[in-house]
Amino acid sequence: MINVIVTYTVTPEFVSENKTNIRKFLHDFKSLNQEAFEYKVYIKDDGVTFLHYSNYINEEVQYEVLNVPSFKEFQKLRDESGLNGSHKVEVLQSI
């Protein structure tokens, strides 16, 4: 099992667009095998910091999920919005 947490902070002006882009890829994820992965997105109390939690049964599933076109577009737009070095990816080890 692969478990990942991604956090990043966007500008207040980009929050609404980021939420729209997230909804798009989450909708597209529904067409994939839901038993092979889990993907959840949260926004922190500050209103501008997003947390994505995902887990995948293996690397092949992870690759499939992360290469959905709407997800790739979300990443592109998010990165272009100006994250100011806030983007952090953490791979979690199961105990």
Rank of each mutant, 00 (worst) to 15 (best):
I22V: 15
Q62D: 11
E35N: 14
V65W: 03
V65D: 02
E90V: 10
P69W: 13
L77H: 02
E35T: 11
S31V: 06
V68P: 00
V89G: 03
K72H: 04
T11V: 02
Y42K: 05
V91S: 01
D45I: 14
T49S: 09
E38S: 13
N67D: 14
G85A: 04
F37S: 06
P69Q: 12
K76E: 08
K40T: 09
S94M: 04
N33L: 05
L26Y: 04
N3P: 01
K30H: 08
F37E: 04
N21L: 15
F25N: 04
L66V: 07
L51Y: 02
V41N: 05
N58G: 05
Y53D: 01
I57M: 07
H52W: 04
E73C: 02
S81P: 01
F50I: 07
S94I: 07
H87Y: 12
N84D: 06
L26T: 10
N84V: 03
F14D: 13
N18M: 13
I43W: 08
S54C: 07
L83K: 01
T9K: 13
K72G: 01
I5K: 05
I5C: 10
M1Y: 06
V68H: 03
V91E: 05
N33H: 05
E80F: 02
Y56P: 00
K30L: 11
V91Q: 08
L32G: 02
E59W: 12
E38P: 02
G85Y: 05
F29Q: 09
E35L: 06
L83G: 02
Y56W: 12
Q62A: 15
E59K: 09
E38D: 12
H52V: 14
N3L: 07
R78C: 04
H52Y: 05
K44P: 00
I2N: 05
E73Q: 13
N3F: 10
S70C: 11
E38R: 12
T9Y: 01
N3K: 11
L66P: 00
Q62E: 13
R78M: 12
N58L: 04
V15D: 04
E13R: 09
Q34D: 11
S86E: 07
N55D: 05
F50S: 02
K72S: 07
K44Q: 15
N33E: 13
L32T: 13
K40L: 13
S86K: 00
V91M: 07
S54D: 11
E60A: 11
R23M: 13
L51V: 15
E13T: 03
Y63V: 11
I43Y: 06
L92E: 03
Y53M: 06
V89H: 02
E35R: 10
N3M: 08
A36N: 12
E38T: 11
